[in-house]
Nucleic acid binder design. Structure first.
Lengths: 187, 187
DNA sequence: AAGTTATCAAACAATGTGTTCATTATTTCA
DNA sequence: TGAAATAATGAACACATTGTTTGATAACTT
């Protein structure tokens, strides 16, 4: 279902529903949001909602998926990075993209979204970077997983704090910080 | 409201409700759990539920709070630890306690519970440990916060994975791993 | 044993859910 | 452009959950 091949009506409907949902999500946790409310705010029939989404959670999931799709595209243009400069740059790109879409991101990455989404974003940037280091160092598969997890989740934590604090620092700085901490752990 | 001062009936009611809730939480996410279902499984009147809890989320919150209370007690017996051995031991204690109460913990710390709860547990063990290192190193307050966050959230990630993997490794090993990674970051 | 307090069953209006169906509006493409 | 295809709509529906209130009953405390 690429947005290109969609009927214009469908595009409009989905756009309005997502917009409405995001707007409501700013005010209350997802558990308190009703389908009815989403539809009223979007001025979309409730039956139409059910034609596209199962419930609020399915809707959130789809928003997140679309987001990751975008991020992947942003990264696709970057060649596989072997040097530090390139790694940091990849991280910076992602973090910069997050800043551009601050409104939605700060929602999805705040307490509102779910932790899995955080992880997925960070893993995109680091997976290949970590893969190399698995080889370089002589780590058991399981140990490597634990360390990988430590780094990934920690990085997510940092990004989240940065967002909550209003994204005042430049993205490069955060990217550099994550990279440095990662290196230390892998020393 | 310490459990000591409670009417026996109240103790019983709350016990049954929590038990029922935990049991249901194994099968479905909290959002899909209804008050009615909790009460039926607990054989408690619905009106009685509302006398004690606002909703499922309030109930979960209270379960988590009780849990943290327990953990704090477990730690209270440990003197302020300055050496590595003592720090690791403190971590091991917590992780060991988690293992003892595996059933509930694996729920609260899995995707089911919320991230804040993870953080709160780990912070208990590390707060004072980190405090020292803020002084030793010359870090700006903000930088220290970011690094602290990286470590805390990363540690939570490791513990979570350990639980999900069935807690096969001994608790000391995980404690040692967290300590080592923490030290590396702070190097 | 008497007084206090928690739980209970039953009932209630209010609200949301998920689905169906005929009707209307928009889009697609031949 | 005009016909066929498709999507959105409004209304209605049975059903479930919610949160609250009532007076009666049972258990606890002192």
């Amino acid at each position: 279902m690429s947005p290109k091949s969609m009927d214009r009506r469908v595009k409009y409907t989905i756009m309005m529903i997502k917009k409405s949902f995001i707007s409501i999500l700013k005010e209350k946790p997802i558990a308190k949001i009703t389908i009815k409310q989403i539809c009223e705010e979007a001025d979309i029939n409730r039956a139409t909602f059910y034609a596209h989404f199962k419930d609020q959670y399915d809707l959130l999931q789809q928003i997140e998926d679309g987001f990751l799709e975008d991020i992947k595209l942003h990264l696709a243009s970057i060649a596989y990075s072997a040097t530090e400069r390139e790694s940091v740059s990849a991280l910076e790109r992602i973090i910069g993209y997050i800043k551009e879409n601050a409104e939605v991101c700060s929602l999805l990455l705040s307490d509102r979204g779910n932790l899995d989404f955080h992880k997925r974003i960070m893993m995109i940037a680091q997976t290949q970077f970590i893969a190399e280091l698995k080889q370089k160092k002589e780590l058991s598969a399981e140990d490597a997983e634990y360390i990988f997890l430590f780094i990934t989740v920690g990085s997510v934590g940092i990004t989240q704090k940065w967002i909550v604090d209003g994204m005042k620092r430049p993205a490069v700085e955060i990217a550099q910080m994550i990279f440095t901490l990662t290196e230390k752990v892998l020393l």
